[in-house]
Design a binder for these strands. Structure first.
Lengths: 361, 361
DNA sequence: CTGAAAGCGCTAACAA
DNA sequence: TTGTTAGCGCTTTCAG
């Protein structure tokens, strides 16, 4: 039974390259060439094909094209935590870049579960994706490789350190970020800068400590380990560590906190101690979380370049697919300072930041 | 292996159904039948095929399958605002459901721009998606239809009212949610409940007002319009409206705010006026934003069922594709109350909510 | 410059 | 029950 008979209800037969060929009075091969900007087509044929395409509103079927060309112009994006606080900015970066290059992205959420990751990867492979981005909310990833062997399909790690050194891996420049934050406090004339850091099982914690030291020492201040604290990333931990630091005989004259939550907790502690921010103690945070702009006082903070990281991951995966092959290994994306009132009064308007306490108007 | 820039690199030949057939000593058609659990295959052939599949680690090529079957088991998810505060929960719901049904989802971000939406839809059509979900962060959508005619491809609207009544449209039950919030305050013995609402160009605003009225009147309290305020959704607006309400000769004895931001602003105002929350004035918010759990005091709030809405959208689109055809028109998903301290002391632990001020440990 | 022909990997009639 | 055949819609030699 020919399916010309049942064109009506189910899936109306779409226009094919043959229809275009017929209307233009050329062969399907010629239409294909025109569609792909291939050479060796007369101006005349090209014109006729183009107008036939326009007239029929023809669009080539990507599936058929992919089957032949073995390219789907499709990538998979697997995230550990779709609702993670850092995830969407990176996703947006990936999506912007890849879609501008004509790629589509399959969204997969693994919940950090290896079985789910494997299942998603399998499906992606079946669907012949051209590449995969593995995005993590900076969780510690035990595994150094994807949960499934991807064969020759390129992979890029986003916000996730890995032991697999043959693959590009995009992370923030935590060292540089810590330098920037510390230097800002130094530029305010502070000499005893307390560091409120995260737990040491995070890579970032070590890099940020080193960046802090580097800035301190470059300023000719000697590193004093008694000014350094480490704990969870949460608000409460910041509160505790700040109280602890301020109770020293020779307390710090500024606080650099390695997350905005820590900074919020620290400021709460300072508040309770009747220490004014920023007049007595300026405070710098890290991350540039949306709430930082609405904190009281608004937080000066070292911004994580999440969107840029996402863009870079997108560019790298596209590059790995279309060439040239990107450099494998760690790629650090610079952090930048966002100045707000927790480090001194600003005259102009703040850096514009999405309104976190209500983003719909 | 040379590879010029922008030259598509082809990947090595994968194992095909013919390889399996050869190894199993049967025809490709038989392999296909086994793979698709079709009848009329001997137990013997089935066994041999299965073991050949296992031995070769064969996986059918979805692209080839799709070309033939005209089904891609793929849907498109277009969001107005990938970084919107309500977006990811819904996305997660969609992803959970669709992936459990064997579908993959293409993620597209339109930035609320019709041209971008059109371009994405075009690409999705080219890639032969089986269905599309249009997700909005509850922005007002001027257009009542997708930016591109999708022909016979099913569409579901998520968190977005539309004039297109032939399509399923999933929204929260704002009316019911407002009833729940208001009733909670009534159950606390309050009689003059102030309503701090959003702007009237949102559908939700009207529904919530009606829900409030309904609850009030069902409780035998007569509706007093002087207790109702409307303004932007933001914190500042909540502050202003609360101040205004509390300056009345006969001020409210409770406040129902139609967003958590409004509630935060209202509480700030009450604080300034030395009015205690919840003892003098209990306050209920709306949305159950992550910060609500960490507010001081933690906010009792009417939760938007975002994840459930996402799941429902996923179920509907799958249903529209595989049958049975889902009911078109508006589907309201019930809101629910989350009790925290802004309405009275709680003995037990709070409802568990993701930690918003630092979700990584 | 153009088009006929041969597939990409899989499915589905239809014969055997 | 099985295998043969004929495509899905497009690309790509390779003769003409």
């Amino acid at each position: 039974m020919s399916n010309k008979n049942n064109t009506l209800q189910k899936r109306p037969q779409r226009i094919t390259i043959r229809d275009v060929a017929k209307l233009a009075g050329v062969s399907p091969a010629t239409v294909s060439k025109v569609l792909n900007d291939a050479p060796h087509v007369s101006q005349e044929s090209r014109q006729r094909v183009m107008s036939a395409v326009a007239k029929l509103d023809f669009r080539p079927n990507s599936i058929a094209r992919s089957l032949k060309s073995r390219r789907t112009l499709t990538i998979g994006l697997i995230t550990d935590d779709l609702e993670g606080v850092f995830t969407t900015s990176m996703m947006r970066g990936v999506e912007d870049v890849t879609s501008s290059r004509g790629f589509s992205v399959f969204l997969c959420n693994s919940y950090g579960n290896a079985d789910k990751e494997r299942a998603h990867l399998q499906l992606l492979l079946d669907k012949q994706v051209d590449g995969v981005i593995l995005l993590s909310g900076y969780k510690v990833r035990e595994r150094g490789a994807p949960a499934l062997d991807l064969g020759s399909i390129p992979v890029v790690y986003l916000y996730q350190y890995t032991r697999d050194i043959n693959v590009p891996c995009i992370v923030p420049d935590d060292f540089g970020g810590a330098e920037i934050g510390t230097n800002h406090l130094i530029s305010l004339g502070r000499k005893r800068i307390g560091l409120i850091n995260g737990p040491y099982h995070y890579e970032a914690t070590h890099h940020r400590l080193e960046g802090y030291k580097s800035a301190i020492e470059n300023a000719g201040i000697s590193y004093d380990p008694s000014l350094v604290r480490s704990g969870k990333w949460y608000e409460d931990a910041g509160y505790m560590m700040a109280k602890d630091l301020m109770s020293m005989d020779n307390p710090p004259d500024a606080l650099f906190c390695c997350s905005d939550s820590l900074a919020a907790g620290a400021i709460r502690a300072l508040c309770e101690l009747d220490i004014r921010v920023p007049d007595d103690i300026p405070v710098v945070g890290f991350d540039n979380r949306p709430f930082a702009a609405h904190h009281v006082p608004p937080l000066t903070t070292v911004a994580l370049p999440l969107y840029e990281m996402g863009r870079m991951a997108g560019e790298m995966i596209v590059s790995a697919i279309l060439g040239p092959t990107p450099e494998p290994g760690i790629h650090k994306v610079p952090c930048y300072l966002v100045r707000r009132e927790s480090c001194g009064v600003l005259k102009a308007s703040y850096n514009s930041v999405r309104d976190e306490t209500g983003s719909y108007s």
